[in-house]
């Protein structure tokens, strides 16, 4: 019980403090971390819990970002419309991906998700009239929630924080439920799962569609935080970046996704001001994590917490 209160109170207090103290640039940056964190967390459900390695996750996130931006330009920035179109797009793309890739072995899974992702990129890059082609889409209307306009960095940050909290609760409830345990079963011993009467496809398809919904929700807000969406957001290198964030943060922990996205985007944002070689730094952090903390920073923090507790007791 005490732990549950702390789990709600700590992030809520951190979000409130950030909203009060941070400047606009930092707030937008934090919102971006949270949105990528949600997408990486949904990728963790696939990779960490299902053992389903995907290199096409940015297509779900970025595809939803385009859909939300296009819908907002057409019909205005109502939050429900924006989130709804992003979630729907993420789910539809994930379902299409699932039908194509989930019957194949694991090496093909990697390549097929990559190819599917690149097909989305092709559409984003070449369908100029709708997606703006290489220039992407700018000049989006402000988000609105009923009578309120959510255009300030603070409002966008709080919206992203709320979405992250909801997404985290949804993700946790999924992995704790029978369907999430079945997903772990398909990772541990798929043949046994089939012999117990589970349809591997049904289990994995559900996980993929859920991941699409979460990544889609995060992607929907991204253009409004970033004030822009371009083809880079659906490119396979963006998918690879999400996998790197996941490994740094910690596969299989859900909340590690947010740490991984903070570390990666922190290096990208603050180091790229000084050097073009920020990716070298990401690589270094990646290698160090893999060598020193094979289960990511999340596992390191967990070990630290247990030590402190033991000392306290």
């Amino acid at each position: 019980m005490k732990r549950n209160i702390a789990m709600v109170a700590l992030p809520a207090a951190a979000a409130a403090a950030a909203a009060l103290l941070a400047d606009d640039f930092v707030l937008r940056f934090l919102a971006e971390i949270l949105l990528f964190g949600i997408a990486v967390m949904s990728l963790d459900i696939l990779i960490g819990f299902g053992g389903l390695m995907s290199l096409g996750h940015a297509a779900l996130f970025g595809g939803a970002a385009y859909a939300a931006a296009i819908a907002a330009r057409q019909w205005g920035g109502d939050v429900a419309l924006v989130l709804g179109s992003g979630i729907a797009t993420g789910m539809v793309l994930a379902a299409l991906m699932g039908v194509v890739v989930l019957r194949s072995g694991h090496l093909f899974l990697l390549i097929l998700t990559l190819l599917m992702g690149q097909m989305v990129w092709e559409v984003a890059f070449h369908w100029r009239e709708v997606t703006g082609g290489a220039d992407g889409l700018r000049g989006l209307p402000a988000l609105s929630l009923g009578p309120w306009t959510l255009s300030t960095a603070r409002a966008l940050f709080l919206l992203a924080a709320l979405l992250a909290a909801v997404a985290f609760v949804v993700g946790r409830s999924f992995v704790a439920a029978p369907i999430g345990r079945a997903l772990v079963g398909t990772r541990e011993e798929p043949i046994r799962m089939a012999a117990l009467g589970y349809s591997l496809f049904a289990v994995r398809f559900r996980a993929l569609v859920l991941a699409g919904a979460l990544a889609g929700a995060a992607g929907a807000l991204f253009p409004f935080v970033n004030l822009y969406v371009g083809p880079q957001s659906v490119h396979w290198t963006q998918s690879a970046a999400m996998v790197i964030m996941l490994v740094i943060g910690g596969i299989g922990s859900l909340w590690g996704a947010f740490i991984g996205s903070a570390v990666y985007l922190g290096i990208q944002t603050y180091l790229s001001a000084y050097t073009d070689r920020w990716q070298l730094c990401v690589g270094l952090v990646f290698v160090l994590t893999v060598l020193l903390l094979p289960n990511g920073i999340a596992s390191g923090l967990r070990i630290l917490r247990d030590r402190l507790r033991r000392r306290g007791a």
Partner: peptide, 22 residues
């Protein structure tokens, strides 16, 4: 074993109301 029990009870893929089944 619970993995088998849940599937046999028809709850193997449940999400909503899954806590009771689990």
């Amino acid at each position: 074993i619970a993995m088998a029990v849940r599937q046999h009870a028809g709850d193997g893929l449940r999400w909503f109301g899954g806590a009771r089944a689990a």
